[in-house]
């Protein structure tokens, strides 16, 4: 029974650590990712094009193809579906990872360091039990009343 209990506790701790790391990963990825510029297309006086005019690009990072028309113009096509890749800033990922790791490590080391001290945190004199008070004077006098107000900005989009 004890072994099962220990096993459950350890499993919960591992899951907790994994979730924490996942959350850190989300934070890192959200901070490091850069959105691509919005697609602009020219539709005015655009000629009718067929699929034969479509040439697939070898560079799949930014474009999926281009359309070449008779007048020599080129329209860049970009995949705007929700599954599109975002560019990753490695430097930001590393810096944020190092920052998070440093903070966690410092906290853990400080907790360990304090665990090696026993400073008698409980009160050395139990004054609540050993020092009874015979209260003779109580005075509560209202000396001032002030009212302040703050306007709440409510943005309506």
């Amino acid at each position: 029974m004890m072994k099962i209990k220990h096993l459950l506790i350890r499993t919960l701790m591992v899951m907790l650590v994994a979730c924490s790391v996942m959350l850190c990963g989300f934070a890192v990825s959200a901070a490091a990712a850069e959105p691509l510029p919005e697609l602009t297309t020219v539709t005015e006086n655009a000629p009718a094009l067929t699929t034969a005019d479509i040439t697939l690009s070898q560079d799949t990072d930014t474009t999926v193809g281009s359309l070449s028309g008779e007048d020599g113009y080129t329209i860049e096509l970009t995949d705007t579906s929700s599954g599109s890749k975002k560019s990753v800033n490695w430097l930001k990922i590393i810096l944020i990872s190092v920052g998070i790791s440093l903070v966690i490590t410092i906290i853990v080391v400080l907790v360990i360091y304090n665990g090696y001290k026993s400073n008698g945190q409980t009160e050395p004199y139990e004054f609540k039990n050993k020092a009874p008070l015979d209260l003779k004077e109580t005075e509560d006098i209202l000396v001032d009343v002030s009212v302040t107000s703050v306007h709440i900005n409510r943005d309506n989009h």
């Binding site: 008070l133 015979d134 209260l135 003779k136 004077e137 109580t138 005075e139 509560d140 006098i141 209202l142 000396v143 001032d144 009343v145 002030s146």
Partner: peptide, 8 residues
């Protein structure tokens, strides 16, 4: 704001 006194 109150001014409070306790004695005993």
């Amino acid at each position: 704001t109150y001014r409070v006194k306790r004695g005993g």
